[in-house]
Amino acid sequence: MFKYSVDSDISMKLLQERHTQELYRLTDSSRDSLREWLPWVDFINSAEDSGKFIQQALQQLAENNGFQAGIWFEDKLAGVIGMHYINWANKETSLGYWLGKDFEGKGIMTKSCKAIVDHCFNELHLNRIEIRAAVQNYKSNAVPERLHFQKEGTVRQAEWLYDYFADHNVYGLIKEDWK
């Protein structure tokens, strides 16, 4: 099983079926804050729905198309981070992430994202990583900015968020710029 220690308080592990209840509880307890920026929240209505996500994540890993990892903070599931896909032909991927509301503001996501970036460049030998975030999602935009991704532009009306289209900032990082 994949497990990576980010620091003494933060670790990442591949999500497995045994994490289904814990993932659902975290999603459900943070539903209002997650729903502001994530269009999938209303589709998670039971532990079974979280289990389906975990099964899809394990299939993604089996197909060598990236992975989804749970982020644990002080041995509690705090959120999820992963790759949307890997474009092996162009050696690129995009990252997605979210934290439960009780875990925000502790530097957890920046440290976890840094570890994933290191893995992508040094282990997977990718050349480019992209992160997109809704323009007004300041917390999510702060992560790539702290990690010195370059803001490459804004995609207008990139995502339907329940009752409006949100614009996305696009951040990119290439291997030669990673320190």
Rank of each mutant, 00 (worst) to 15 (best):
A115N: 07
A115H: 15
A115G: 05
A115L: 14
A115Y: 07
I116T: 09
I116P: 13
I116W: 08
I116K: 01
V117Q: 03
V117R: 08
V117I: 15
H119V: 06
H119W: 15
H119P: 09
C120T: 00
C120A: 12
C120P: 01
C120I: 00
F121H: 03
F121R: 00
F121Y: 02
F121K: 02
F121P: 00
N122T: 09
E123I: 01
E123Y: 04
E123N: 10
L124R: 00
L124V: 00
H125P: 01
H125L: 02
H125C: 15
L126R: 02
L126G: 05
L126N: 04
L126W: 01
L126C: 06
N127H: 14
N127Y: 09
R128D: 01
R128W: 05
R128H: 11
I129F: 05
I129A: 04
I129L: 14
I129Q: 09
E130R: 12
E130A: 08
E130S: 07
I131G: 09
I131A: 14
I131R: 10
R132W: 09
R132D: 05
R132S: 13
R132C: 14
R132I: 06
R132M: 10
R132Y: 08
A133V: 11
A133R: 08
A133L: 03
A134L: 06
A134P: 14
V135M: 09
V135Q: 13
V135N: 15
V135D: 13
Q136F: 13
Q136A: 13
Q136S: 11
Q136C: 14
Q136D: 15
Q136I: 07
Q136T: 02
N137D: 13
N137E: 10
Y138V: 03
Y138E: 08
Y138W: 12
Y138A: 12
Y138G: 09
K139I: 15
K139H: 04
K139L: 15
K139N: 13
S140P: 13
S140R: 11
S140W: 13
S140K: 10
S140T: 04
S140E: 12
N141E: 11
N141R: 13
N141S: 15
N141G: 13
N141A: 15
A142F: 07
A142Y: 10
A142R: 01
A142P: 04
A142D: 12
V143Y: 07
V143K: 10
V143N: 00
V143A: 11
P144K: 07
P144E: 02
P144M: 12
E145R: 02
E145C: 00
R146A: 08
R146F: 15
R146K: 12
H148S: 09
H148F: 15
F149Y: 10
F149S: 03
F149N: 01
F149V: 04
F149D: 05
F149I: 06
Q150G: 09
Q150R: 04
Q150H: 10
Q150N: 05
K151H: 05
K151T: 10
K151G: 03
G153C: 04
G153N: 04
G153A: 05
G153V: 12
